[in-house]
């Protein structure tokens, strides 16, 4: 069963090919990690998927139909990395706005505020938050959106170890509620902690897709058996 199928997605910036024939699928209720080093095309992939950046080729489809870029917001919500939206507005307003504007989950508001420990910063303007605080606030905001699939670009960037674990737990709890998460992560240790399946991206190409065991087997078939079964070793073997 597939909630979103990505087929042959290609994106070029002039002579540079940022994404080349990228295909993979997103299954309902899973945490899918898009793993790759900096510059591997993760952000470009997410922006093309969300329809905020035009792709040169390829399709994105749900179970029933191909989704045009303008229709993808019915299925996907994309949280970009390194943004500070509405910098003068307080966190409390941003959360209310997300619920009101997107028709989001008002019933989840208190839970999200508690899980991301936002009580102390609710009245602070978003522009005045530290990188980690802003990341937590924006992740909380994204969890309130109504789309069944959430794409989060580098959700752990800017968080310390304790915060990373807490956020990972919060995301896991959210998935248990029926949502599907696709996370772009360049820290493989973080990815291994939270993701069910992985898409390995390198140089704009998909080098492998599957669970850790599946990827490990794939590496063995290609004659690049990793030293151990860790995601790091598998990633290095396949890319």
């Amino acid at each position: 069963m597939v909630v979103v199928r990505v087929s042959h997605l290609t994106k070029r910036y002039g002579q540079l090919t940022a994404l080349s024939d990228v295909s993979f699928s997103i299954r309902p209720g899973e945490v899918l990690g898009v793993i790759g080093p900096n510059g591997s095309g993760k952000t470009t992939l997410f922006e093309c998927l969300a329809g905020v950046l035009p792709a040169d080729a390829g399709t994105v489809a749900d179970e029933a139909r191909t989704l045009a870029p303008g229709d993808r917001c019915s299925v996907l919500f994309y949280l970009p990395d390194a943004i500070a939206p509405w910098p003068a507005q307080p966190v409390r307003w941003a959360l209310d706005y997300t619920v009101g504007f997107f028709g989001g989950r008002l019933d989840a508001l208190d839970d999200v505020v508690a899980r991301f420990d936002l009580d102390s910063i609710l009245d602070s303007p978003i522009g005045a938050l530290s990188k980690g605080q802003r990341k937590r606030a924006l992740l909380a905001m994204s969890l309130l959106t109504p789309q069944p699939v959430l794409l989060a670009d580098e959700p752990f960037d800017g968080l310390d170890l304790r915060q990373t674990r807490e956020v990972a737990d919060a995301l896991r709890a959210h998935v248990a509620g029926g949502r599907t998460l696709v996370l772009s992560i360049h820290q493989i240790v973080d990815a291994a902690r939270i993701c069910d399946r992985f898409v390995l991206l390198s140089g704009g190409c998909v080098r492998g897709e599957g669970t850790l065991a599946e990827l490990s087997a794939m590496a063995a078939v290609r004659g690049a058996a990793p030293h151990d079964q860790s995601l790091e070793e598998v990633f290095l073997a396949l890319t």
Binding site: E47, A50, G51, V52, G70, D71, C73, S74, L76, F77, Y78, L79, P80, A82, I83, A84, P85, W86, P87, F101, F102, T145, Q147
Partner: peptide
């Protein structure tokens, strides 16, 4: 302002 702050990318995800 919306472009610079990234708010536009978020808001564009409404139909």
């Amino acid at each position: 302002g919306d472009k610079q702050s990234g708010a536009l990318k978020i808001e564009l995800q409404h139909s």
